[in-house]
Simulated scan of single mutants.
Amino acid sequence: MKEKELVFGYDYYAYNPRLEDAEGIYLQEYQLFSHPDLEGAKNYIRDCLEIVKNKKENDICITFFAEGEEKNFYHILIFKDNQWIEFDDIENLKIGKYELLLQSEDFIMNNQLVVTSWEEIADNFRAFQKINEITGSKIMKYYSSFYHWYYTPEEGLFAPSKFLGYRNSNIVDYDSSGSGGQTQKALAKFFTKLEKTSPEFDILYNELLQISHNSGKKLNDQVLNGKGGIYVPIKL
């Protein structure tokens, strides 16, 4: 990890006092630190939470931020009166009953440039196909964390959002840096998400499942059962 990169991710909990095996939330010791991308990361998390469906009173979102292995801290939000507000009563978290509903992927704030043309996207689609050609490719380490997959029918190719959405992506240098939300926003100008009940989704999902199996990797369950999915070019 580069020295100045800010890594962050979040855990989403539902408050459920009636759940017998629900437990309190215990956080490791942490220290505050400053980072130029910190506010941008917090805003990104808030954007993610805005699209969460079925939010309930007292839901909790705990975001971790890290700069290197030693500096890290948590930012806690609670859903109250139909809005997310900051929450700092850590002791109350320990005695409440919470059910973990979602753990996000890890995000990295950086200055990578997103794609702005179909030509750049097409180049990245082709670059991703070399995933099985390079021994020890780092992208194999992250394969099972991808759950937003894009498909081009012209060449019959798949690629994940975080690889496809940044300019000049390549298998050798890929290190999972960047934000899936940032690339999804850039790719939304060119692609639309398939309904999971559609015949086209069923065909492409099974094809992607077979490709993953052939690569010796497990396809993330979020593609089928969670917030992930498969995207195809917008028909003009």
Rank of each mutant, 00 (worst) to 15 (best):
N170E: 11
I139P: 00
Y10G: 00
E23V: 12
F201H: 06
E57F: 05
N16V: 09
D47F: 08
W84F: 05
I134F: 06
S117R: 09
E39K: 13
G9L: 05
W149N: 00
F65I: 04
I78Q: 02
F191K: 02
M140A: 01
Y142S: 06
I76M: 02
G165F: 02
V172I: 13
E57Y: 10
S169N: 07
Y12C: 00
Y231M: 05
I131Q: 01
T116E: 14
Y150I: 04
F79M: 04
G178H: 05
E23R: 13
Y143D: 03
Y143Q: 03
N16M: 10
L157E: 07
S161D: 10
Y151I: 07
T116Y: 07
T135K: 11
F79A: 02
E200L: 13
L93V: 07
F79Q: 00
L209C: 03
I230Y: 00
Y147C: 04
N72R: 14
S137E: 10
G136M: 06
L19I: 08
E120L: 02
F146N: 01
L187A: 10
D173S: 14
H213I: 14
D202W: 03
H213Y: 13
E67R: 10
E3T: 13
E120F: 03
Q31S: 15
G229E: 03
I121Q: 00
I76F: 00
L209W: 05
N214F: 07
D106P: 07
L19S: 08
K227N: 15
R18M: 11
Y44F: 11
A188R: 12
R18N: 12
N220E: 06
I78K: 04
Y231T: 05
K97P: 00
G96Y: 00
N168D: 13
L187C: 13
Y10A: 03
H75E: 13
G216R: 04
K42I: 15
A127S: 14
G216N: 05
H213P: 00
K53N: 10
E120R: 04
L204C: 04
K218F: 09
F73L: 09
